[in-house]
């Protein structure tokens, strides 16, 4: 044993010659010094960048305010660009800075002011910068380019944006899809027809926000989405129906209660809670017994609470016998609520 150890240590000894450590120490020290210089350099670069940005913003400020508040007399003429600004805008970073400034302002201002901002964007051909980004191979530039083109309502790029709705990077396709809906409303949702990828919850929220104040134009379109092979499209559509309280799709929503995806069933249940009616309550009651997820059964109870009437009381009284305490409390709550309403 000891001889083995001895030889092992000897072996190790030859491996870990002290010179190796000197090299390691030298390497570490130089890396540390390198990191520190990088740190200082980046810090300086960042503060320089920040002050340049601030300076640019100050230079643009007066000029931009005058353009925003500009009232056109009769026909659209190009804005005057002061010589100092024109000179500045020959530089790429200044054009970039102006571009992002205009995007931010477009988010804030509408009416004549919004039109003026867009006109300036067109006049300076800033769209070329965004389009260039959109065609880059980097996903974050692509997404940024699309976002900017949409914000400035550059409809000429729609066909190109459309092809990106099926992009394999989730952020790129999300921005492309959002851009289409932003620019075209419901007509922008045509990409649903061949959507192979799922829509995230976040993306659904974003699309719903864009469509919030627009009534559903064609019932056929909505019905076709409800039978989409993509469960997240169905889920989105059910959310849309709830938000718009679109009672005309009640039958179709009831059909979704037997959808194989739990996600869809759950959404259908809460959707029926939002579009109250007797058939909805009946459908929820019938579905209760065939549903085997406890969470969904609880959802049904809170749905009944919203959509039900005294007609549902006998059914609820039956459920009082359930051994599950949480369930029983939900039943009691629904009963109390419905009795109070009567």
């Amino acid at each position: 044993m000891t001889t083995f150890l001895k030889s092992a240590f000897q072996q190790l000894n030859s491996f870990t010659a002290i010179e190796l450590f000197y090299i390691a120490i030298a390497v570490f020290t130089s890396i540390i010094l390198g990191l520190i210089s990088a740190m200082v350099f980046i810090m300086l670069a960042k503060s320089k960048q920040a002050s340049r940005q601030k300076h640019l913003q100050a230079q643009f400020k007066q000029w931009l305010v005058s353009i925003i508040l500009h009232e056109p007399e009769d026909k659209k003429t190009d804005f005057e660009i002061p010589a100092t600004i024109a000179l500045l805008l020959q530089k790429r970073f200044a054009r970039r800075a102006l571009l992002s400034e205009l995007i931010r302002l477009k988010d804030n201002l509408s009416g004549q002011s919004g039109d003026n901002i867009q006109q300036l964007f067109n006049q300076l051909h800033l769209g070329n910068l965004s389009a260039h980004d959109m065609r880059s191979s980097k996903w974050y530039l692509k997404a940024k380019g699309i976002q900017e083109l949409a914000a400035m309502e550059q409809k000429a790029y729609l066909p190109e944006i459309y092809t990106l709705t099926q992009h394999r990077h989730p952020v790129v396709r999300m921005e492309a899809q959002t851009a289409l809906v932003y620019l075209q409303g419901y007509a922008g949702l045509t990409f649903f027809r061949q959507l192979a990828y799922p829509l995230t919850e976040y993306h659904q929220a974003k699309l719903l926000q864009l469509l919030a104040n627009q009534p559903i134009p064609s019932p056929e379109m909505v019905r076709s989405w409800l039978v989409s092979p993509n469960p997240t499209v169905v889920q989105f559509t059910l959310k849309l129906i709830s938000e718009q309280h679109a009672t005309q799709f009640q039958e179709d929503v009831i059909t979704c209660l037997s959808h194989p995806s739990e996600l869809v069933r759950s959404q259908a249940i809460s959707c029926l809670g939002e579009i109250p009616s007797a058939p909805a309550a009946l459908a929820l009651r019938t579905h209760y017994t065939s549903e085997n997820s406890k969470a969904l059964q609880l959802n049904i109870l809170s749905g009944l609470l919203k959509t039900g009437t005294t007609n549902d009381l006998p059914f609820l009284h039956q459920l009082r016998q359930t051994p599950d305490e949480g369930m029983r409390l939900a039943v009691e709550k629904a009963i109390r609520h419905l009795q109070q309403q009567a």
Partner: peptide, 19 residues
């Protein structure tokens, strides 16, 4: 040498985190 090696490595990691 061993101590220096270990110390330097710790510092390297901290510097990297600050960076």
């Amino acid at each position: 040498v061993l101590t220096a090696f270990i110390l330097l490595f710790g510092w390297l990691f901290s510097t990297f985190a600050i960076l």
